[in-house]
């Protein structure tokens, strides 16, 4: 299974980025091989629709689970269309969140916010 987490730095010890669509990088973690890969988020600098573009990239990478503190409505629509489940992150590093997820301790994110549109998303 492939997990994606928006992160501030290219490290498995990175903090989880508060923004989904405008995160600088995504950590892609393969639960079978235990390998981590980092994806530059080309949507980060978008004028608008960053969540949609970021979601599209994760769909194309074959991600099945996203762990994030929050997620916009449009991004959620793309992710759910592709059958990707979104879980709410907990305070701590990306690594901690992966372990919490694998331990079954994360809950699914069910509330999605309308876009911030450059008014305080970060």
């Amino acid at each position: 299974m492939r997990i994606a987490i928006p992160v501030d730095n290219k490290s498995i010890e990175s903090s989880v980025c508060i923004s989904f669509g405008r995160a600088p990088f995504f950590l892609l973690f393969d639960t079978a091989s235990k390998e981590a890969e980092f994806l530059d988020n080309s949507a980060a600098a978008s004028q608008g629709g960053a969540g949609i573009k970021a979601s599209q990239a994760l769909v194309d990478k074959g991600v099945q689970v996203v762990i994030a503190p929050r997620c916009g409505e449009n991004a959620a629509e793309v992710l759910s269309c592709a059958g990707i489940k979104v879980y709410k992150s907990v305070t701590g590093t990306a690594k901690k969140n992966i372990n919490e997820f694998l331990g079954g301790n994360l809950t699914q994110l069910i509330e999605f916010h309308p876009g911030f549109h450059n008014h305080g998303g970060r």
């Binding site: 949609i52 599209q56 269309c81 592709a82």
Partner: peptide, 16 residues
Amino acid sequence: CKFNALAFVNNRVTVF
């Protein structure tokens, strides 16, 4: 689309 109003998921284009 510079506004990212289109996505291609599940073999179809979605318009936002």
